[in-house]
Design a protein around this nucleic acid. Structure first.
Lengths: 217, 217
DNA sequence: GGGGCGGTCAACCTTTTGGTTGATCCGCAC
DNA sequence: GTGCGGATCAACCAAAAGGTTGACCGCCCC
């Protein structure tokens, strides 16, 4: 099939330059186009198709500043006809990011601190229709499915969100039309599931695990 | 002086490759060495010096996985004889990061989403002994000095960061080698300046104002 | 060299939060 | 229809955090 044509999607010019250099240096890769966010990626993909130019793999970041994020873009790409495989390449290896990416239809999930060769290998796998997971990511997925008892209920997540805005137990109770006693009960359950013992630690952990958005965002 | 010799410090091979490509493509730059964390950077610097090789600018990331972080490394470099200027190049533009970097003796603070030309320009400025700030960063510092009554001190920001990780007052005290009473005093000041009256609200507000990074990031 | 500011600490008290036990109610699954 | 889990509430106590007053030190600036 000749050289493997890649679409780079990342909001950092530095990273795009790095990927281009890293991929085209040794292996038989070429960069079909670049995009700084999800919207631009979809536009590029459409443009290349009208020109009859092939895209074999999309290499996609998740966090992309202002524009459409990588997970949303991945889902959109998978809804195209004959969609190219999407390989996620990001800095974060949190549960929620990984699960969201997989759910959106990503073919792989690599981390930016991986050595060049691992990244090249993953691109090859993705192009061949196989899945490619970074070792760290694979380990996290394994540990997760083996411990389902730590999943929070919807109500608990709702509480956590109010908690993160800085409300007191009393305020949370008023917001949810329940008693303060109930709020405390929920909090005890939340702390237990997150493995912490106070509200600020719960917020930190929940933010980290992408259970809630960062406070004030 | 011939070409400008740079030491790249970043834990992501992708980013190092990007910077190398971006810097050496047009301008008269060369990469003297690369390092994946602060410790490695100091070692490289020492090695190059024994070889009599010049380093004109150190380009440094802040977050670097396991190893010594960029701020600590910057401070260490500034303690050398005839230290090279250190230009910070990072993803985050929060007050805490910027203040810490400036305090550690950084010559500039650029963001990774900056266009290549801005980064090249900043490297030149740093090499010439001048300061180089990304527009966003400059704006943040300006707004900070124009409203000094609500500006947090460096110590207060430091406390806030620990607060956001979920530590108790006692733990914070131990981390900073001060008494719990002092922690409480600082917190009262912080609450006053942020216009809140408890720690979770302080974290939410501080995250919102980009004084600190979201918890766990 | 006096004044202001930031950082440090102590003592005291009030309020909030954390932790436990136990209980009721409802919906859903077997 | 019995059982289970989620959501609700109460009472109680211990621990942590919040708020106030007052104090000392070191540094920088005029």
């Amino acid at each position: 099939m000749g050289e493997l044509r890649i679409l780079l999607v990342d909001d950092h010019p530095v990273v795009r330059a790095g990927l281009r250099a890293m991929l085209t240096e040794f292996a038989d890769f070429s960069v079909a186009a670049e995009a700084a966010d999800g919207d631009a990626a979809l536009r590029e993909l459409a443009r290349l198709r009208t020109l009859g130019e092939r895209v074999d793999v999309v290499l996609m970041d998740i966090q992309m500043g202002a524009g459409m994020d990588g997970v949303t873009a991945t889902a959109a790409i998978r809804r195209l006809e004959l969609p190219p495989p999407v390989l996620i390449l990001t800095t974060y290896d949190t549960e929620a990011d990984i699960l969201a990416a997989v759910e959106a239809g990503a073919s792989g999930y690599m981390l930016k601190d991986a050595p060049p060769d691992q990244i090249r290998q993953a691109v090859l796998s993705a192009a061949a229709g196989q899945t490619a997971l970074a070792p760290k990511v694979a380990a996290l997925l394994m540990s997760r499915i083996s411990s389902p008892e730590t999943a929070l209920t919807a109500r608990e997540v709702q509480l956590l969100e109010l908690l993160a805005t800085g409300l007191t137990n009393r305020s949370i109770a008023r917001h949810l039309f329940i008693s303060e006693a109930t709020v405390k009960t929920h909090l005890v359950h939340i702390y237990g599931k997150l493995g912490v013992d106070n509200r600020t630690a719960a917020i930190a952990r929940a933010t980290q695990r992408r259970i809630i958005r960062p406070p004030g965002q």
